[in-house]
């Protein structure tokens, strides 16, 4: 079997050993929505709705483009969502309905978030 020159045996997320630029030194404070993404991931996985392997499978399947265009917490909420739908916790239709309701509440995160805490 001839090895394709376009296939080096690993996927995009397997970055170890590649050349890259300087280590970025910028740092941001986590916004409350990002902390909630982290909390939802922890709570839902602790309750057995998915595993870290399920999350990573979705993150890895997103491909390199997502790594460049989405922030860390954006990728994680997408992965949490995919796993919760696969686990049957809610349907895509229920999510679409809820997202439309949230969007209608206001133009900013502060206005659109409803639940306390």
């Amino acid at each position: 079997m001839t090895k394709s020159p376009s296939f080096d045996g690993r996927r995009w997320h397997d970055m170890g050993g590649e050349l890259a630029g300087p280590i970025p030194d910028d740092q941001h404070d986590f916004a409350i929505w990002e902390k909630r993404v982290d909390a939802l991931m922890t709570i839902a996985s602790n309750k057995g709705h998915f595993t870290v392997d399920g999350l990573r499978r979705v993150l890895e399947d997103m491909g390199e483009d997502a790594f460049e265009t989405m922030t860390y917490c954006e990728r994680w909420i997408a992965a949490v969502n995919q796993n919760l739908i696969e686990a049957g916790v809610y349907s895509t239709a229920a999510l679409a309905t809820k997202m439309a309701q949230v969007e209608a509440r206001g133009a900013t995160y502060g206005e659109a978030t409803d639940a306390p805490g």
Binding site: D29, E74, L84, Y90, L95, K98, T108, Y109
Partner: peptide, 23 residues
């Protein structure tokens, strides 16, 4: 300071709120 709650709502923030409320 991170741009936060007074910035325009993003698609992924909308999803976080929706998932949180559904859960």
């Amino acid at each position: 300071f991170r741009k936060d709650n007074d910035e325009p709502l993003t698609y992924w923030q909308t999803m976080e709120i929706a998932i949180r409320e559904l859960l």
